[in-house]
């Protein structure tokens, strides 16, 4: 894992990815709020189209988009497949002893549209941020400072500990460890995890000592300044009426 950020296409600096992180977080939240409150399938399809357009505009590769749309978690797929048969209502077709209902199909479709729209918009607007920038933006949005420090340090150490994990795994492979479905594997993985945690804790002591040396007193200074530009206001000026239209149409239909 070389980093958490999503792999962008060729033109990495699209208009959207240059916008202020706060604009992007707020827009993604408003979009989720509106999308989840919609019920009309046509409007939800429109919301999904908007999300896909935003994702493409942000420079996400189409293959990644397709992956995300298809790769709902297994249990979600099971649930979506079961819903038409478990919702009471007018029968559409029967499959052996099971009867699919129109209401059930609509519900399954609605959920699939909502889930994918929100995830795509989130990946497009927030997932394309550098994790560190996301941390700074959260701080500017008045998330408690301790939580932000924790976030920034966690992001910093994920790649370090992933390398540590890979070297431990390599050492196990060098001793001919083959993972399988048995007690030996699970206990070995437990030991691996224990070693990872012991090394992490020792590392955290060194980190704390180093931070103390540099005069850490519980405040972590966020150096980069974010400047709100007129383009950010413009983005909100486009986003808000669009979302407003969706809500109005939902109320009218």
């Amino acid at each position: 894992m070389n980093g958490l950020t999503l792999q962008l296409g060729d033109d990495q600096l699209s208009w959207l990815t240059q916008r202020d992180p706060r604009t992007r977080i707020i827009t993604a939240m408003l979009f989720s709020l509106v999308t989840v409150s919609l019920n009309h399938p046509a409007l939800l399809t429109a919301a999904l189209m908007i999300a896909i357009a935003t994702a493409l505009a942000a420079g996400l590769r189409p293959s990644l988009l397709l992956n995300r749309i298809l790769a709902l978690e297994a249990f979600m797929l099971v649930m979506l497949a079961l819903l038409p048969f478990t919702t009471p209502g007018a029968a559409v077709f029967t499959l052996g002893p099971l009867t699919a209902t129109e209401e059930g199909l609509t519900l399954a479709l609605t959920i699939a549209l909502k889930a994918n729209s929100v995830v795509l918009m989130l990946l497009a607007l927030v997932g394309t941020l550098e994790p560190v920038v996301l941390g700074h933006a959260l701080a500017r949005l008045h998330v408690p400072p301790k939580l932000v420090h924790l976030f920034l340090l966690t992001v910093r150490y994920i790649s370090v500990l992933h390398q540590e994990y890979q070297s431990l795994r390599r050492a196990m492979r060098a001793r001919a460890f083959m993972p399988g479905s048995n007690f030996h594997t699970w206990r070995s993985l437990g030991n691996l995890l224990g070693m990872l945690l012991v090394r992490s804790l020792e590392r955290s002591q060194r980190v704390m000592a180093a931070m103390k040396c540099r005069g850490f007193d519980g405040r972590f200074f966020l150096i980069n300044e974010l400047y709100w530009q007129w383009r950010d206001s413009l983005m909100l000026c486009v986003a808000l009426p669009t979302l407003g239209t969706l809500v109005t149409l939902e109320l009218l239909l």
Binding site: H149, T154, S200, V207
Partner: peptide, 20 residues
């Protein structure tokens, strides 16, 4: 905070391990 952060990162990495 550093201790909790390093542990959080360790758990994040551990949650990526797929166990047969």
């Amino acid at each position: 905070i550093p201790q909790a952060a390093v542990m959080a990162a360790a758990f994040f990495v551990a949650s990526l391990i797929s166990v047969p």
